[in-house]
Amino acid sequence: MIYEVFRQERKGQPLQHAGSVEAADDHFADVYAREQYGRRGESTALWIVPRSAVLEIHEFVDELNRNYHRVDGYPLKEKLKEARERAASAKSAGALSAGKD
């Protein structure tokens, strides 16, 4: 059986995937994971999870191409640039009109 091992480096930090061990059962997985990921003071906690217990998701359907739902689907950079330019020209226009008075 393959077990995925998650390791916490310091208390309060999130557990992060460290690697995997092959073991006959939970007991072996416990001992092997300690050996490989915990015996040298490198971890404060381990999570050992049978790979079969991991729910996997690989596909993220976006049939209607609603890219504005995605973090990269709504580029702000250009819009910000335009907004800044607009703001700058409004300001200089304001300064000009103020000068006329």
């Binding site: 061990v21 092959e22 073991a23 072996f28 001992v31 092997y32 050996e35 490989q36 015996r39």
Partner: peptide, 11 residues
């Protein structure tokens, strides 16, 4: 017999 055991037993 297996890699993990190799590491553990050597240790």
């Amino acid at each position: 017999p297996l890699l993990e055991e190799d590491v553990a037993f050597s240790s």
